[in-house]
Design a protein around this nucleic acid. Sequence first.
DNA 1: TTGACAGGTTAAGTTACTTGATCCATAAGG
DNA 2: CCTTATGGATCAAGTAACTTAACCTGTCAA
Lengths: 298, 298
Amino acid sequence: MGTTEEKIRWGVEQRLEYIEFRLFWDGELKRGDITSRFGVSTPQASGDLATYRDRAPGNIDYDGSRKRFVATPRFKPRFIKPNADRYLAQLEAIADRVIGVDETWIGAAPAAEAMPIPRRKVDPAILKGLLAAIRAHRSIEVEHRSMNPQREETMWRRITPHAFGHDGLRWHVRAFCHIDKIFKDFVLSRCLAVGELHEPGAEPAQDDLWFSFLDVVLEPNPALNERDRRTIAHEYGMPDGRVTVPVRRALLYYFNKRLRLEAAKTIDDPTLAPLAVVNQDEFLSAIPATKSHRDLLM
Amino acid sequence: MGTTEEKIRWGVEQRLEYIEFRLFWDGELKRGDITSRFGVSTPQASGDLATYRDRAPGNIDYDGSRKRFVATPRFKPRFIKPNADRYLAQLEAIADRVIGVDETWIGAAPAAEAMPIPRRKVDPAILKGLLAAIRAHRSIEVEHRSMNPQREETMWRRITPHAFGHDGLRWHVRAFCHIDKIFKDFVLSRCLAVGELHEPGAEPAQDDLWFSFLDVVLEPNPALNERDRRTIAHEYGMPDGRVTVPVRRALLYYFNKRLRLEAAKTIDDPTLAPLAVVNQDEFLSAIPATKSHRDLLM
DNA sequence: TTGACAGGTTAAGTTACTTGATCCATAAGG
DNA sequence: CCTTATGGATCAAGTAACTTAACCTGTCAA
């Protein structure tokens, strides 16, 4: 009883979820957290807390001496399903200064530090232009710094983009290059400006390397001892000692570099490459196809 | 005139920001986008669009033939400041399946793919326990898979955590280990369970490696040709050909590995390591201090 | 013991909503 | 050509969800 379940407005639901999020991760919150984050009055925040108590009975208590609302020991989430990876993704964004703590629901962010890589910011206008070209299935002119020594240092080229790819360190746009007549990756932070939209140069479907996948079978590096292999198998979720990862062929090069797979079995210190590829012949022979365009590499 | 600027409720402001976000990035939206995302009625969504038109005159138009609201050519954001890195961070979270498209404001997400690394999910209960210990300045028992061959394969150890660190591939918790009496990193996905809180074993301030920084001076790899060096300098924001990055000594080991700095100048193919360290003596001699605990490496 | 802080409550009034109806414009299909 | 589907605008009546203003309670620290 008490749990009257009428329809509930979006704003109220957000605040109930916020209350529960804070109770789960921080274990506590105060009324002022609600009033300041959502700009509501104190009676409203009190009302929300009462509503929460009503709908999730036994989850919340008021600790008079600490002057905080606290989660009870038998707290059981009812409005959100807690997700550690989501929490950590937010923490990373905060550490990278991509968002502010006050834009998340994290109340007291723990001290956290991510790799401080001093990458140039991407110009919103450029990203916006590429998005527009992708949506409209058209080509766009891009001023791009090329690593190809045959080319001008920076040049305008027309490309027909269709997707974005992230190699773990930076974003590329996958596009048909009207000069070279092939599909390539263009690093976003090397795009200096964008121009007009025009007729497309190719259909996205023609980008075979993008649309075909290789099933990479990974195992703990056999150069490791039995025990370390078990640890790696556990960490990467390999119940039977292996895991199959479908990887776009266009991304195989980065996948290889990122996990140091190529040299895994020959490297002197196997702890540098915890994973190795089972279907290595297939894997290695699939890589060069993406490696032929020097622009991709660096 | 027209722009009456009374106080505005949180829910309304969210919708106005949503409208502008969509206009900027997607260039268009329809009334139904608002009703479905925020659960409001059609008259309300119409009202919001009218309010937006009122407050940001000249930004929005209705294209009757496409049956969409579209951004005008002279669109100028008034409620949000567009941030490409933030957009891309969301895109990455979507590609990694950490959040759903419907949880972001991105209307039509472009095709995007991030590195598919099959990492085990972190148990929310474990992260929550560590957060609680950090907040309370107490120690916590953790069942952890050790890579140290002297130790049991999995063992309970008491640690006093104080921060989180991300090496680009995974999260660690930085903590004082009550067994080894030193501060170490513990990979989150190797923590299997957490236990009770107790007295702390050390003050966070005693973690010298965490709280002291080394100024790493980076330059484009000198093994590259002049022109490629210029490109790298541009991409990493080095107006005078160098950039100084303060890095926590506790993270130097990962920083080195991630950017392949150690071997940068000697590696056969310099395109694999676009960056090199200027103050290399200082840098290399600072690394081993963090490298002494094998647990960190793999 | 006083004040500052955190929270709760009640009453009266306002704003932001909903439902349900009716109407308009455009595009696509027969 | 007419029909239907889609997407939008608007009005009227009613209702949640708010606000402001005032006043009350418990706990802690000076």
